[in-house]
């Protein structure tokens, strides 16, 4: 399966849109070569603002630009966008629903070498908790392009969570896209897996494995975490016996929480969460190595599915304890 860079898609799409829409301006905090906002800087130097290593000032400056009718995209690593600039995003931008677009790049564990300080495992929870904030997690480069274009048309603040590594393509070039829509990737009857980002590919692999055991798995790409289409979640869960969520994020406050909130009181289906179990990240030499360390794997998703379906555990279960004590 071919893979592509989501962050290159981000930068290239900004350039494409910037050609015809002069309202688009881009702010960066000295990470433009990583977030790929550098592409916009090269194309439109007058509408690119290098704000230095000062994320708080960048966010409030973006607010001021939005207040003069511009559509500012501010990019930095997800951990800094959601953490360092949190108060600025909340106070000025979100309360007044200002038209600021926030790119949280190198999200999750995808900046595998840099360790816990640079790995955003709680950014979706933080952003999702802010009223008026929209939260998007693209599955691939094609969806990233469609999202960036949709963000320009979508009023108000949007948080776009972008993986650092190239990911497999699941989105068709000609598929229509709308913020808020759930995207079924695989149909199935027994269990539905709501996943996003890199975990969609892991869910597909899990579905393949379970199919060999006679278990039919539906996989849904929930690339809009907020506003979450509750009716669509209920419709996708309906008819399945159980629900699993899979995210490259803490199980506290992220996609799993959002799905559980959507399902509350309606289905009575058992639900299991695949995600990071309330601990920080750590350095590793490779992305897949790190994902495996935190059990963000097809095996973990398959085990979760067997668990909620009350089937015997698979041969892969118990390969590794969750690293709960990693930071203690």
């Amino acid at each position: 399966m071919s893979t592509k860079s989501l962050r290159t898609a981000y930068g290239e799409t900004l350039v494409e849109l910037g050609r015809t829409d002069e309202r688009i301006v881009v702010l960066e905090a000295d990470l433009g070569k990583s977030t790929m906002s550098i592409l916009f800087q090269q194309a439109f130097p007058d509408r690119f603002f290098e704000m230095g290593i000062a994320e708080q000032n960048m966010a409030s400056t973006a607010a001021g630009l939005a207040l003069t009718g511009k559509i500012p995209f501010m990019s930095t690593f997800a951990v800094f966008a959601s953490g360092r600039a949190y108060d600025q995003l909340r106070q000025t931008i979100s309360i007044a629903r200002l038209n600021v677009k926030i790119c949280g790049s190198s999200s999750g564990l995808s900046d595998f070498g840099d360790g816990s300080t640079h790995q955003a495992i709680e950014d979706v929870a933080i952003m999702r908790a802010i009223p008026n904030m929209t939260v998007l997690v693209p599955v691939d480069a094609v969806e990233t392009r469609k999202m960036v274009a949709a963000m320009v048309e979508w009023p108000g603040p949007v948080y776009l969570r972008i993986n650092r590594n190239d990911l497999p393509i699941y989105t068709a070039d000609d598929a229509s896209y709308r913020i808020g829509r759930l995207h079924p990737v695989r149909d199935g009857r027994d269990v539905v897996v709501f996943a996003n980002g890199v975990m969609v590919s892991k869910a597909i692999a899990a579905a393949d494995a379970l199919a060999r055991e006679g278990v039919s798995v539906k996989v849904v790409n929930v690339s809009t975490v907020k506003p979450l289409d509750r009716d669509a979640v209920l419709a996708d869960a309906k008819g399945c016996k159980a629900v699993v969520t899979a995210e490259e994020h803490s199980i506290i406050g992220g996609l799993g929480s959002a799905i559980a909130e959507a399902l509350r009181g309606n289905t009575g289906q058992p639900i299991e969460f695949v995600g990071i179990d309330d601990c920080f990240g750590t350095s590793a030499h490779g992305y897949d190595e790190l994902l495996a360390h935190y059990r963000l794997t097809p095996e973990a998703i398959a085990d979760a599915a067997r668990s909620v379906l009350r089937l015997p555990a698979g041969s892969s279960s118990g390969v590794r304890q969750l690293p709960r004590a990693a930071n203690s």
């Binding site: 001021g64 009718g69 511009k70 500012p72 106070q91 007044a96």
Partner: peptide
């Protein structure tokens, strides 16, 4: 009122953003 302020320390940055926008225009 031009912006939500009161979480201290943010107004000057907002002013800068407005000033950049005005210069672009």
């Amino acid at each position: 009122v031009e912006a939500n302020t009161g979480s201290l320390g943010q107004g000057l940055s907002i002013a800068n953003g407005m000033a950049l926008g005005l210069k672009l225009d």
